[in-house]
Simulated scan of single mutants.
Amino acid sequence: MSNISRRQFLKGAGVATLAVAAAGMLAGCSKEDVPVIPEVTTRPVMVIFMADKGNGETVVVGETAKIDVLKTENSVKVADIDKKLLPEGYYLENEKAVVEIRKDASKGEYIIVFVTDVTYATKEVEVKLHVTNPTLGEDPQKIVKVTVAKDATTIRIGQIKLPEGYEFVPGAYEADVDYPINDAMQFAIKHV
């Protein structure tokens, strides 16, 4: 048995303590804590953009792109794809989608992301409602917000969600008529 100096003993004990502490820290790591180191913790995945042309026909649009995905993942959140990779003039069809990573002998790993050339941008408009039979002390004017297409200039009464317990004044409006959106627009409602 060899003699060990006090300094060597303390140095060895310190290394052992550090190893135990590091093991404890690693055990507490979650998938989100894994550092992203390209080509070490990630792998390349091809992105194929497809568009639905109607009648069940889908076509590949633009160039394929490449993204880095953690090696532990088997799917990709579409919202995480850099918008600069999208084909020009196209938008994500569903940003909330999660797509499975597929594997093919010729392509390697890839995902299919659906895009569209139609924008679904919206805006909110305030719609004034006039209560024709207010209760005592009730403000006869109510305002509701309605989400419409960004370029919309008209609104239909079916788009307006009335407060609970109210209805449009019977016979005052038609369901298939487009009413102009402007600051003066106001619809008459009454308590049911």
Rank of each mutant, 00 (worst) to 15 (best):
I4D: 01
R6L: 11
R7N: 05
Q8T: 01
Q8L: 02
F9V: 07
G12H: 10
G12N: 11
A13D: 03
V20D: 02
A21V: 06
A22M: 10
M25S: 12
S30Y: 00
E32H: 13
D33V: 02
V34E: 06
V34N: 03
P35V: 05
P35E: 09
V36H: 08
I37T: 08
P38V: 08
T42M: 00
T42C: 05
V45K: 00
I48M: 10
I48N: 04
F49V: 02
F49L: 04
A51T: 06
E57S: 09
G62C: 09
E63Q: 15
I67H: 05
V69M: 04
T72W: 09
K77V: 08
A79Y: 12
D80N: 15
D82N: 15
D82P: 05
D82K: 14
K83L: 11
K83T: 06
K84F: 07
L85M: 10
E93F: 11
N94C: 10
E95H: 12
A97V: 03
I101F: 03
R102Y: 13
R102H: 14
R102N: 13
K103C: 04
D104I: 07
D104G: 09
A105K: 09
K107M: 09
Y110I: 06
V115L: 10
T119Q: 15
Y120V: 06
A121P: 00
E124H: 05
V125A: 12
N133T: 11
P134L: 12
T135P: 04
E138V: 06
D139M: 13
D139K: 14
Q141P: 00
Q141I: 09
D151F: 13
A152E: 04
R156Q: 14
I157N: 03
G158F: 04
I160T: 01
K161W: 00
L162D: 04
F168S: 03
V169I: 03
G171V: 03
D178R: 06
D178V: 07
D178W: 08
N182H: 10
A184R: 09
F187T: 01
